[in-house]
Amino acid sequence: MTAAPADLLIESPATSDGAALWRIAKESKTLDLNSSYSYLLWCRDFAGTSVVARGADGEPVGFVTGYLRPGRPRTLLVWQVAVDAAHRGCGIAARLLDGLAGRLVAERGITELETTITPGNTASERLFTSFAERHGARVSREVLFPADLFPGGSHDPEVLYRIGPLTESTAL
Score class of each variant (00 low, 15 high):
residue 2 T to K: 13
residue 4 A to C: 09
residue 5 P to W: 11
residue 5 P to I: 10
residue 7 D to Q: 14
residue 7 D to K: 12
residue 9 L to G: 06
residue 10 I to V: 15
residue 10 I to A: 10
residue 16 S to R: 10
residue 18 G to N: 01
residue 19 A to T: 05
residue 20 A to H: 09
residue 21 L to R: 01
residue 27 E to W: 02
residue 27 E to T: 06
residue 27 E to Q: 12
residue 28 S to W: 05
residue 29 K to Q: 15
residue 30 T to Q: 09
residue 31 L to P: 02
residue 31 L to F: 05
residue 32 D to F: 00
residue 33 L to H: 01
residue 34 N to M: 03
residue 36 S to F: 00
residue 37 Y to S: 01
residue 39 Y to E: 00
residue 39 Y to A: 00
residue 40 L to A: 08
residue 41 L to V: 06
residue 42 W to P: 00
residue 42 W to M: 10
residue 44 R to L: 03
residue 44 R to I: 00
residue 45 D to E: 11
residue 45 D to A: 01
residue 46 F to K: 00
residue 47 A to D: 03
residue 50 S to V: 02
residue 51 V to T: 08
residue 51 V to F: 14
residue 55 G to L: 02
residue 56 A to Q: 12
residue 59 E to K: 14
residue 60 P to Y: 08
residue 61 V to E: 03
residue 62 G to N: 05
residue 63 F to R: 01
residue 63 F to A: 06
residue 64 V to D: 03
residue 65 T to W: 00
residue 66 G to Y: 02
residue 67 Y to R: 05
residue 69 R to K: 13
residue 69 R to C: 03
residue 70 P to F: 07
residue 70 P to S: 06
residue 70 P to I: 03
residue 71 G to P: 00
residue 73 P to T: 01
residue 74 R to G: 00
residue 75 T to Y: 05
residue 75 T to F: 02
residue 75 T to N: 01
residue 75 T to I: 04
residue 78 V to I: 14
residue 80 Q to P: 07
residue 82 A to V: 03
residue 82 A to I: 02
residue 83 V to W: 07
residue 84 D to N: 09
residue 85 A to C: 04
residue 86 A to D: 14
residue 87 H to I: 03
residue 89 G to Q: 02
residue 90 C to I: 00
residue 92 I to S: 02
residue 93 A to C: 07
residue 93 A to T: 03
residue 97 L to F: 11
residue 99 G to I: 05
residue 100 L to T: 12
residue 102 G to S: 08
residue 104 L to K: 04
residue 104 L to Y: 09
residue 108 R to K: 14
residue 109 G to M: 04
residue 110 I to T: 07
residue 111 T to N: 04
residue 111 T to F: 00
residue 112 E to L: 10
residue 114 E to K: 13
residue 114 E to D: 15
residue 114 E to T: 13
residue 115 T to P: 09
residue 115 T to G: 05
residue 117 I to A: 04
residue 122 T to F: 05
residue 123 A to G: 12
residue 123 A to T: 12
residue 123 A to C: 05
residue 126 R to Q: 08
residue 126 R to H: 07
residue 130 S to H: 15
residue 130 S to P: 09
residue 131 F to I: 15
residue 131 F to M: 15
residue 136 G to F: 09
residue 136 G to R: 13
residue 136 G to V: 10
residue 139 V to E: 06
residue 140 S to Y: 01
residue 141 R to T: 07
residue 143 V to H: 07
residue 143 V to F: 07
residue 144 L to K: 07
residue 145 F to C: 09
residue 146 P to K: 10
residue 146 P to D: 10
residue 147 A to Y: 06
residue 147 A to E: 12
residue 147 A to N: 04
residue 149 L to K: 09
residue 149 L to P: 00
residue 152 G to H: 05
residue 153 G to M: 07
residue 155 H to N: 07
residue 161 Y to A: 13
residue 161 Y to P: 11
residue 161 Y to E: 10
residue 162 R to Y: 07
residue 162 R to K: 08
residue 163 I to M: 13
residue 163 I to V: 14
residue 165 P to R: 08
residue 165 P to A: 08
residue 169 S to I: 01
residue 171 A to L: 09
residue 172 L to R: 13
residue 172 L to E: 11
